[in-house]
Design a protein around this nucleic acid. Structure first.
Lengths: 132, 132
DNA sequence: GCAAATTGTAATGCTCTATAACAATCCGAT
DNA sequence: ATCGGATTGTTATAGAGCATTACAATTTGC
């Protein structure tokens, strides 16, 4: 049995859990991750966001456009650097993220409930060794 | 820590191993999987191939077109059903798959070498519980 | 003060995939 | 035996996602 294959199967199952958690909202994993990053790093620039997400600047811009168009995030001028925007979650974005986080965490725990608590700890430890 | 997140990170690392193994060949995971399926199921139809791959019929056809254009697979008429083709690996396809399987398996084992043999067994067992 | 680097933006193209429509063929109920 | 429905392959089309490139505005370093 290949690790790559087994991992892919497990990730597909985990993605299904994510899709169930975000049903009704057009939220994809990158968009969800962007919301989490904006919450944890208020005022982050688009370039920095793209770097964290592992995508190009243009991709970060399209992602930001999407969030801004739906009123989930906003761009604010930064006094110390007129080139870069500072990105912030709006109240609506914070509210949506709060809801989604609860639902995603809930589905994630349900997904992990196929393992015993000891197995969960061990599994996460082994994942940490594989992808440091 | 979310399972989905940790799994995604590990799968990215495993994908890197796959990319190293197939460097120099324009082989993607779906194409590799298609070759494996064709080897194990000679004469399979395009629809069945698409179903196993979890993609639509049109996707299976473009995938098959790609394999046929490179001489890795061929379509043969089936006497019992004039609608469907039977798909087969060519000699060249079998040779390439043999080479790739060795290299992919080698890189997969190197990827798994970050764990001890006991950890490997345990990890695959837990993956099996998560994605039955 | 000026060259180089950084940031955001826009335009373009590529890849992958899904969807819908169509013809040919097979299947099953009558 | 026949006719309606299902299946298969095919084509065309569209859309999402992403990278690449080029450009203007701005900052930074020498």
């Amino acid at each position: 049995m290949h690790f790559g294959y087994a991992l892919r199967r497990a990730q597909i199952a985990a993605f299904d859990a994510f899709a169930s958690a975000t049903a009704g909202h057009p939220i994809t994993p990158p968009r969800y991750t962007a919301l989490v990053i904006l919450e944890a790093n208020p005022g982050i620039s688009q370039s920095a966001l793209g770097e964290v997400l592992g995508t190009a600047r243009s991709g970060a811009m399209m992602l930001t456009n999407w969030l801004v168009a739906r009123g989930l995030a906003e761009r604010r001028h930064r006094p110390e650097d007129a080139r870069a925007w500072g990105l912030y979650l709006t109240r609506r974005g914070k509210t949506l993220l709060g809801t989604l986080k609860r639902r995603v965490l809930d589905h994630d725990q349900r997904f992990g409930a196929k393992l015993t608590p000891a197995e969960r700890r061990e599994f996460l430890r082994l994942l940490g060794k594989l992808a440091p």
